[in-house]
Simulated assay, not measured.
Amino acid sequence: MSEHGRRAQDAEDAGGTTGRPPAGGRTDPATEAFVAHRNLLFTVAYEMLGSAADAEDVLQETWLRWAGVDLGTVRNERAYLVRITTRQALTRLRTLGRRKESYVGTWLPEPLLTTPDVAEDVELADSVSMAMLLVLETLTPTERAVFVLREVFDVEYDEIAEAVGKSAAAVRQIAHRARAHVAARRPRGGASPAETRDALQAFQQAVETGDLQGFLDILAPDVVLLGDGGGVRQAVLRPVVGADKVGRLLAAGLGRVTAASLRPAQVNACPALVLRIDGAVDTVVAVRIDDGRVSGLYAVRNPEKLAHMGRETTLRR
């Protein structure tokens, strides 16, 4: 087997985005470096794309390019790998943009069942939340790459410039513009752990009972419900706004929900409810809570976006 082929096999043995060491002890410096940074690279790609499936494809493309690099010319392996990943994600992001133009209904990010430690990193948790990923969708591809690399991963401007093919001065201007854009649209408020726990429990009880008053008591007056069925499963096609409209819609449409089929979870480092029907994940509802009330609901039903709900995903900065 060629050196390139052996490295590719080592990468396959490394086990997806989990960062497990290659099986059988077969390893080399290139494989070790890639595996060591794999969770970071996946997180970079996911934050740029909002799609775990596309992020994994980007990692495969990153590996293929990394496997052919002369490591003797690499001063900083982390920076080099992030640069490759960013370039591949930018290419994929532009393709996704065209795909989203024909998407049926609202496009929502692919939900991830995240490990508990992600929520403990406040900045990382905020950056992968459904609400923030939707804000990032309003940036241009280059603005999104610059914002993610600088604000989330604290990459130096010179390194970002190499990744996006701009001068450092241009990157600083793009970062300033993107930062202002995000600040104007960033969700406000927040909730303490106790408020989050109590609000999620109250919302889950309302879902299980279908009690309209229970919804009205826990929903914020300006709550927004977004649904993503991808044209395959039934979902609201446009945002539903206001406690009365959202409450009535939920109360009328929850006939198949039972306490046994609904479970709380951490999705994208935020509270969520996962509905299973006949043992399979049917709907993931990420819940945004501000000041003790539910202010945002992001219901993903598109089966193609539920593949990562079977196991926890480790995200890293």
Results as ranks from 00 to 15, higher is better:
Gly105Thr: 01
Val223Asp: 00
Asp28Phe: 04
Gln205Val: 12
Asn302Phe: 03
Met309Ser: 01
Gln234Pro: 06
Val171Gln: 04
Gly230Phe: 05
Asp10Glu: 15
Pro239Met: 09
Leu96Gln: 08
Ala178Asp: 01
Val223Tyr: 00
Met132Gly: 01
Ala125Cys: 06
Ser167Ile: 05
Val287Cys: 11
Asp154Thr: 14
Leu93Ala: 13
Ala161Lys: 03
Gly214Asp: 00
Gln201Arg: 15
Thr31Ala: 14
Pro116Trp: 05
Thr114Ile: 05
Arg83Lys: 04
Leu124Pro: 09
Asp290Arg: 09
Thr258Gln: 14
Thr95Arg: 09
Thr18Val: 11
Phe153Trp: 07
Asp282Leu: 11
Ala55Asn: 01
Arg7Asn: 12
Asp117Phe: 07
Gly227Phe: 02
Arg248Cys: 00
Pro22Val: 06
Ala272Pro: 00
Ala260Ser: 07
Glu156Leu: 06
Gly5Ile: 14
Pro271Arg: 09
Leu112Val: 06
Pro29Ile: 03
Leu306Trp: 02
Phe153Cys: 02
Leu124Met: 09
Glu312Pro: 01
Glu3Trp: 15
Ala67Thr: 02
Ala11Gly: 10
Arg6Lys: 13
Thr313Gly: 10
Thr106His: 06
Arg38Lys: 08
Gly210Leu: 05
Ala33His: 12
Arg6Gln: 15
Tyr46Ser: 00
Ala89His: 01
Phe42Gln: 01
Arg65Asn: 11
Glu312Thr: 08
Leu124Tyr: 03
Val257His: 04
Arg316Trp: 14
Ala145Ser: 05
Ala180Asn: 08
Asn302Trp: 01
Asp282Ser: 15
Leu136Thr: 07
Pro187Glu: 05
Ser51Val: 01
Ala252Cys: 02
Ser167Asn: 04
Leu226Ala: 03
Val224Cys: 13
Val152Thr: 11
His181Val: 02
Gly292Leu: 01
His181Arg: 05
Asn302Asp: 07
Asp121Val: 13
Arg26Ser: 09
Gly165Leu: 05
Thr17Ser: 11
Leu149Phe: 14
